[in-house]
Design a protein around this nucleic acid. Structure first.
Lengths: 168, 168
DNA sequence: TATTGTTATACTCTATAACTATA
DNA sequence: TATAGTTATAGAGTATAACAATA
């Protein structure tokens, strides 16, 4: 309950229409009811939470999320092209170039010519890259498991299935 | 199945270890199995999908996601402060200033002094802002409903509940 | 003509430091 | 001393246009 500057009393929760003239309110606890009813809002908040789990976990590997994703895809798809990575990860080609250059410079990736297509370049993990991605994947799996440990195994499976229904 | 440049034949799907010497592969369909097993990956993909639903829907209102969120919070919390918005929406104070200025300039928000705290400023919707947020909220609700219409009502409720369990 | 990889570049979003006025 | 709002600015992320080499 907040006192109006003029002496009257008002509840912020009454303010569903534009507040009149010079009424002033104080908000004690924020009401996010509408936003929390939106799928988009909830999925964004959850995404931010999982991003922070990722960042704590892969601090010691010095990998950004997209870099980790690139290495993981190359690990499962030796010879994948830059363009295929872009399509899979929603990254634009000009923004992928520097990322791959950096991973090559750090000794995790190498480029080899594509077997059929002279325009394309295949990407491969180095031994060092293979070790890194293996360690990072294990670490991330366990960090995620801890972060979602308050959901039952069934709930976790349901969540993945529902999310995939959403974006596929 | 891809022919190696040297004449041998190899499957990209065999390449779970670092590819040897100068073997080259072509990837036909990308295998994203590991990434798709991660909660973070799925929730990020779903978030991107819902972001694009939002953007198509609120094109005609010329509102960004965070601007819409600000207006929605002010709609439900007359007199809310800039700092409260920052905490609710994970936006840093210096980045909130310009956004509020813009919404004030466009005639959707106005600032009034805070009843108890001389440092703070309360935010209020103008009549024009009230009309805008009401129209945008209705539109977004219906766009979201359409975007998730292939999930049953029960699945939609489950999804929201599971997401909130994840980030709260 | 279309596509891959690339450069250059602009724009947006996010983050940090520091200042002022009020508590 | 701590907090709300603000300014300036730096850095990261994302976008478009255009070019050379190849299909």
């Amino acid at each position: 309950m907040a006192e109006v500057a003029g002496g009257a009393v008002a509840h912020a929760s009454f303010a569903h229409s534009p507040a009149k003239a010079q009424e002033v309110f104080a908000v004690d606890t924020v009401n996010a009811q509408y936003l929390e009813s939106l799928v988009g809002y909830n999925v964004r908040r959850a995404s931010l939470a999982m991003v922070s789990v990722f960042m704590k976990c892969t601090d010691r590997f010095d990998l950004k999320i997209v870099e980790f994703s690139v290495l993981s895809l190359v690990a499962g798809n030796a010879g994948i092209t830059s363009r295929q990575l872009c399509q899979q990860l929603d990254v634009l080609p000009p923004n992928m170039v520097g990322m791959i250059d950096a991973l090559v410079s750090r000794g995790y990736l190498e480029r080899r010519p594509h077997p059929h297509d002279g325009r394309a370049t295949g990407l491969y993990l180095t031994v060092q890259g293979h070790d890194l991605v293996e360690a990072a994947q294990l670490q991330l799996k366990s960090s995620e498991a801890q972060a979602v440990s308050h959901l039952s195994a069934q709930e976790q499976a349901q969540l993945l299935a529902l999310l995939q229904k959403l974006y596929r």
